[in-house]
Design a protein around this nucleic acid. Sequence first.
DNA 1: GAGTGTGAATGTATTCACAGCA
DNA 2: TGCTGTGAATACATTCACACTC
Lengths: 206, 206
Amino acid sequence: MIKEAISKNAILRLSLYLTHLKRIDREKRITSDQFADQLGISDVRIRKDFSYLGRFGIPRKGYRVDKLQEQISKALGLDRVWSVALVGMGTLGRFVLNSPALKKSVFSVRVGFDVDPKKTSRKIDSVNVYHLYEMPRIIRKEKIKIGIIATSTEAAQESADLLILSGIKAILNLSHIGVVVPSYVKLQNANFISQLEIMPYHILNS
Amino acid sequence: MIKEAISKNAILRLSLYLTHLKRIDREKRITSDQFADQLGISDVRIRKDFSYLGRFGIPRKGYRVDKLQEQISKALGLDRVWSVALVGMGTLGRFVLNSPALKKSVFSVRVGFDVDPKKTSRKIDSVNVYHLYEMPRIIRKEKIKIGIIATSTEAAQESADLLILSGIKAILNLSHIGVVVPSYVKLQNANFISQLEIMPYHILNS
DNA sequence: GAGTGTGAATGTATTCACAGCA
DNA sequence: TGCTGTGAATACATTCACACTC
């Protein structure tokens, strides 16, 4: 079982699989064909994605759900808790903080940051909130590796720069602007309007 | 100037370019190299993306910002207003509705849907909200082509099915679950937790 | 000469076709 | 025999190298 690098896109799909698997009885088995139907993805692609994790499918029977969950979690590093720093405690930040799906996830918002003195040096929704300039000190102390930017577009790049200065390794940018980061930092732009903006093209050219 | 199909990934980048261009003086010119620096993307890729839209760069001078905006908007169909249907008027739906970036965009939430009788048959944040079962009638009447799912995970698939039944062509799914749609419908999953879930892998394998 | 624009080469992801196993 | 697992083939995306133009 030689360890092959997992295809970049496969990572995202594996996390989707994991979410879906959690909604299936752990005791069950599932074939790649059934799984494909449930997710609207081709069965070959699913088998290939699973094969990155090893061989544990059984011909004519399929895969054990519990085994899949375990292997995917392990491969993606989702078998532990990850501390997260949240920058921007306005509407968006509060929304993220209180999102039920986040609370159920392996990600735990350990600390928040804002520039507004009214929001700093106190707890918001049970999270300690500090001023931006305290970021390097606190993030290093807490050894946090993941940051979420939930600021206005104006503050997004500065927040990213500070996060990177603080030793953050991955940034989820929810603001409606592209931020620039050095190549050793993983950046994911997740603004929903960008995703909306590709729709008209597909509608007009389908 | 033969019309070549725009590369799939290029669509998303073009929308990013457009957002960025709106923050630059319309009167200015910009070279692919400057643009590349500002966005953290290679200059060749940018020129190639622009070339899908025609040839309007000037050697030694670069591209006119206003011309770029115009051409990209036109190519992506973002030179007009698009009506959108919003399903789910809970915290997430309200957040989407009141997002400043959405209000500034070409997308206009024309109508909302929910199952909760307390939320239906009235206006919420100046949008008329109806019960789910009225969806086909209203969406067809309003000729809406784009739907946003902002429901709980439980209601997501049913919402998608109803949207499709109503003749919707593109769905932005903000719920934390994959929904399945026929191939003639463009689906975009935009849940931020899925995007967070790929981070640990990149951190552990960098 | 400093930029654009693009065919060719490379790299990456997906699908095909089928060998192998329970 | 119905499923998994995977090398080979194909499709798609990015980068390279350079011709071209202002």
